[in-house]
């Protein structure tokens, strides 16, 4: 503890956490302005707190977060570069949106091309992660092996004849929002892409549902939020294996998602 004129360590720690009342904060601030020793103590407390913060369990970023960020910095830095961004793998979502809907191979050809692009970006990410995690511990190696298995599932979902391919549309309208699902029940492997999705408030998310053919309850198949162009994707969400689908549907849920769909189903297809 410092001398009587200094701020007690207790209060400096609370100040560092912004956990003092406004009046107390002002008093501490006034002292810090003139006391290098207490500023140093706050700095050290912040160092401790950074460690506390960094000790949280890492969570995966939402689908498309990286692309959304890249669009932000692409737009902010130079408009000219945004026309050139198709050369960057991570901008594949934007590229997909721009692709003609009716290619030579029709919708399935479009979907396969789109999925291939996602796959390329996804592989690039995996490669990046692999390089990043060379020093990581054994459990991570196990995780990466699991991801490699999922890559095989993805390939099978794209190529297998038994993969179910479904196009989702909004009610009776000829409205723009559309989703495309490719699903391989035996592997529980699903690739879903959506276009022209309407933006959501930050406390909401779209949730994809698998409606099983055997009449059991809808299975949550991933959360997604559209990017600035209205595009979104769900690639290989955690799904049980061996559940043939009768249909797929999309609902709007609170941001953490739901275990049962909240009506109405805004897009569906079977």
């Amino acid at each position: 503890m410092n001398g009587a004129q200094h701020i007690p360590e207790e209060d400096l720690a609370l100040y560092a956490m912004q956990a003092l009342s406004p009046e107390e904060t002002r008093a501490v601030q006034a002292h810090l302005d003139v006391c290098p020793a207490c500023r140093q103590a706050v700095s050290e407390a912040l160092g401790d707190l950074a460690l506390v913060g960094a000790s949280v369990e890492l969570q995966p970023l939402p689908q498309g977060a990286r692309e959304r960020f890249m669009q932000r910095i692409g737009a902010d830095s130079n408009l000219a570069t945004s026309s050139d961004r198709s050369t960057r793998p991570a901008h594949s979502e934007a590229t997909v949106t721009a692709m003609p809907r009716r290619s030579l191979f029709g919708t399935i050809g479009w979907l396969a091309a789109a999925a291939a692009l996602f796959f390329a970006a996804w592989l690039a990410n995996q490669d990046h992660n692999l390089r990043q995690q060379l020093n990581a511990q054994r459990w991570q190696v196990t995780q990466l092996a699991a991801k490699a298995d999922r890559a095989q599932d993805l390939m099978d979902a794209l190529t297998s004849r038994s993969a179910q391919r479904v196009t989702l549309t909004e009610g009776k309208q000829t409205a723009k929002p559309a989703g495309h699902a490719t699903y391989l029940p035996s592997r529980g492997a699903l690739i879903f892409t959506a276009t022209n999705m309407r933006p959501l408030p930050s406390n909401k998310t779209y949730e994809l549902w698998l409606i099983p053919a055997n009449g059991t309850g809808p299975v949550p198949a991933g959360l997604f939020r559209p990017d600035a162009t209205g595009s979104a994707s769900v690639v290989l969400p955690a799904l049980p294996q061996g559940v043939p689908a009768k249909a797929f549907g999309i609902t709007i849920e609170n941001a953490v998602g739901s275990t049962t769909p909240t009506l109405p189903i805004i897009l569906s297809g079977s």
């Binding site: 970023l61 939402p62 977060a65 959304r68 960020f69 932000r72 959501l200 930050s202 406390n203 909401k204 998310t205 959360l223 939020r225 941001a255 953490v256």
Partner: peptide, 12 residues
């Protein structure tokens, strides 16, 4: 925040 959308906003 316990909210993926808001947490992503913070990142951005």
């Amino acid at each position: 925040l316990k909210d993926p959308g808001e947490a992503e906003d913070i990142v951005q």
